[in-house]
């Protein structure tokens, strides 16, 4: 053991290889490999007579995707929903996280964290269905606020509800790491609360918010169940993928549609990485 240990100590490359080989085998070979196969299959087609996948290069699926207006509309709608959900989550999460990390008495902080975490354990479907009841005709929301009923706004609201904890937690973690002494120093140097917020809090907040937004944005972009429950007649991009793979057995076309959210997320991730927020996850 000891000799192996010292051998490894003298050969850091070997240690690195030992540490990385298994995870990389998993993520690159299994995961990226699977993704690659999926994306390649987007160039295949299904034979209408036999239902067999024809493994022959064709741009047909992408042509349909670009030619039919409906796919563009649905893609834009989905991005809009994901963006709106993210904005709502930020607006609600930042003050809550700030309260939890900096205002609440230290002793009650971890109870607040538990309070935020607990809903994650209640089933996603059950929560979505609870919202269906809340939003029904003459239901509690209708009685109190006169709306919004089922439809796109309801979808945004419920998705924001479902993913809110995924925004609160990273923002809270970021703020918690910000030493109180720094805030006090800023105040001692004569900065008002607003100035302190801009110069001290905001630089911590932005990466945390971006980190949280990866979750709220991507989880919303891929959702196809919530919209079925509270979305009225709305459909999002996840529904299109699901319909083509689940019902029609048309994997190539489903794969072609799936390229759209993949592309959007990869661009989003690269943009976020440039801002350095990935370090904050």
């Amino acid at each position: 053991m000891a000799s192996l240990g010292s051998y490894l100590h003298r050969h850091p490359r070997l240690r690195l290889a030992g540490l990385l080989s298994a995870p990389l085998l998993w993520l690159v070979v299994a995961y990226l490999g699977a993704l690659a196969v999926l994306l390649v299959s987007a160039f295949w087609t299904v034979n209408g007579f036999t239902g067999e996948v024809v493994r022959q290069f064709s741009l047909g699926n992408f042509r349909t995707l670009l030619a039919e207006e409906v796919y563009r509309n649905v893609a834009l709608r989905s991005v809009g929903v994901a963006a709106a959900v993210t904005v709502i989550c930020v607006v609600v999460a930042v003050p809550m996280a700030f309260f939890m990390a900096k205002v609440a008495p230290a002793g009650s902080r971890h109870w607040l964290v538990i309070a935020i975490l607990t809903p994650l354990w209640a089933s996603y479907l059950v929560k979505a269905y609870a919202w269906r009841i809340l939003l029904a005709n003459d239901g509690p929301m209708d009685t109190l606020f006169g709306g919004p009923g089922y439809g796109l706004p309801a979808t945004v609201l419920v998705l924001a509800y479902l993913w809110l904890p995924y925004m609160i937690l990273p923002v809270y973690a970021g703020l918690e790491r910000l030493p109180d002494s720094l805030l006090e120093a800023s105040a001692d140097l004569g900065a008002r609360a607003g100035r302190t917020f801009r110069s001290v809090v905001l630089p911590t907040l932005v990466p945390s918010v971006l980190a949280g937004s990866i979750f709220t944005f991507s989880l919303s972009l891929g959702d196809y169940i919530t919209v079925q429950i509270v979305g009225g007649k709305t459909q999002l991009i996840g529904n299109l993928v699901y319909a083509n793979i689940g019902a029609a057995n048309n994997l190539p076309f489903a794969a072609a549609i799936a390229c759209v959210p993949v592309l959007i997320m990869v661009i989003y991730l690269l943009a976020v990485r440039r801002s350095g927020a990935l370090e904050e996850l």
Partner: peptide, 30 residues
Amino acid sequence: FFGRDTISLLVLLPIALPGIVTGIALDSAW
């Protein structure tokens, strides 16, 4: 090491991509 910056992106990818994409990719590969 070379590619270290890419690793954090790679680790994040499975959760950042929509679940339905991860799901059908793993399904068809499996």
